[in-house]
Design a binder for these strands. Sequence first.
RNA 1: GGGCGGGUCGCUUAGCGGCAAGAGCUGCAGACUGUAGAUCUGCCGGCCUCCGGGCCUUCGGGGGUUCGAGUCCCUCCCCGCCCA
Length: 371
Amino acid sequence: MSGFRFTLLHADPAGARRGTLHTPRGAVQTPAFMPVGTNATVKALTFEEIRGLGAEIVLANTFHLYLRPGADVIARAGGLHRFMAWEGPVLTDSGGFQVFSLAKLRSLSEDGVVFRSPIDGSEHAWTPDRVLEIQATLGSDIIMPLDVCLGYPADDAQAADALRLTMRWAARSARRGAPEWQMLFGIVQGGFNPALRAEAAERVAELAFPGYAVGGLSVGEPRALAYALLDAVTSRLPQGAPRYLMGVGGPPDLLEAIARGVDMFDCVLPTRVARTGTIFTRTGRLNVRNARHRDEHIPPDPDCACQVCRRYTRAYLRHLFHSDEMLGPRLATYHNLAFLATLMTEARAAIEADRFEPWRRTTLDAYMTPW
RNA sequence: GGGCGGGUCGCUUAGCGGCAAGAGCUGCAGACUGUAGAUCUGCCGGCCUCCGGGCCUUCGGGGGUUCGAGUCCCUCCCCGCCCA
C-alpha cells in the first residue's frame, strides 16, 4: 500500500475532521463526496465535467463491471482508469451490496455467495478472495472487502449472524491483503443495534485496515437511529484512518455524518433524483418540473456558482424536462454534484476555522427540506 | 346532391339500456441514499365531507321512448373518407 497516506489535518472540537487522503493518482481533500459511476460512468456526465465540478475521486462498481463488460476486458483496456478515461483515484465497491439488492441470491455460506446475474441469469460464485482479485483486475485504487448487507428492518439475531460472517470475511480479506498499489478498507456492519455496531467497529479496527467504511445505513431506518449508530461506530475507529460512510448523500445527512467524524461519502441520490428533475438548493430540494418554475428565469439555485447555475435558468430546465430532452438530466446532474462538491469545500473550510458547528447549524436551518 | 364512418375528461380512444363513465398520453404533485436515463405512488367535471361518503352538472344541439339513455328513435349542426 505504498503511495497511500491519510493525513488528519485538523479535528473540530465537536468531532468533524479535515484531512487529506493521498493516493498514487492524486490527493483527495476530506470530507469528500464521491460521485457514483456504477457502470464506469457517472450517468449523464463526462469525466471532464466530473473533474470540472470539483470531484477528486469517483466510485465504480465491481458487481456491474464484473458482469459487464467483464473485469478481463477492463484489464486489457489498461485498467479502469484508462477504460473510462478518468485519471483520478477510483474506489470500487465490493459488490456485496449489489449481490443482496440486485442479484438473485442463490446461497450464502462460510465461503461466500452464489448469485445469479440480473443481466443474463448466469450463476456466479464469489468468495472474499475472489472479490479482491476482481478488484485487482479492474485496477481500482481503493477497494472493499465482500460483506453481508441487510435491509431494514433486521432484528438483532439476523444482524449478529450477518455480522459474524462479515467479520470472518473481513479477517480473510485482511489476511490476503491488497497489492501495494491498492488500499483495502474494512467495513463495519452490525445492523441497527448500537451495541452490535460498537462491537463491530472495535473488531474491524483490530484488523488494522488503513481505512474503514460504515455499511448498511440509510436503508430505510429512522434518521435518528442512523446517527446514533454512526456515533457508536466512529467513536471506536482509529483517528488516523479515513472513515467512509457508504451510500449516504442527502445534504443534511452529509452534514450530520461529518459532525460525527466521517470523511468520505458516496451516494446515487444526487444523480438519481437529478434525472427526474430534483435539484439541491441552499434552501432545500426542489423539482424543476413543477409548474411554479415555468416562468422562473433565475438560476436553478441562486446561491450556487456552478457552471449550470451561471448559465441556465429554472424555466429552461423545466422546459427541458417536460420536453424529455437529455440535456435536462445532464444539467441537473451536473448541478447536484457541483452543489455537493461546494458543500464539502465549505465544510472543510469551516472545520479548519473551528466553526464547523455554527456553519452546520446555519446551513441546515437554511435547508428546509427535511432529508 | 348521394353513400359510408364519426362527434365521450386537454389529446387519442373504450363504452352498445343501470355510468361521473375504463385505458393510454398529457397535466398536477410525491417517492427514490455502496444506481434504476428505470420505476413506483397519489390526483386529474364541480361543490361539500365526520374521508365511509354525500349532492350537483356531464358524453355535439334539441326533442322523444324507457323505472332508467353516452348507449334506442326522430331531427338539426359539425368533421372525415368515397362517389357525383
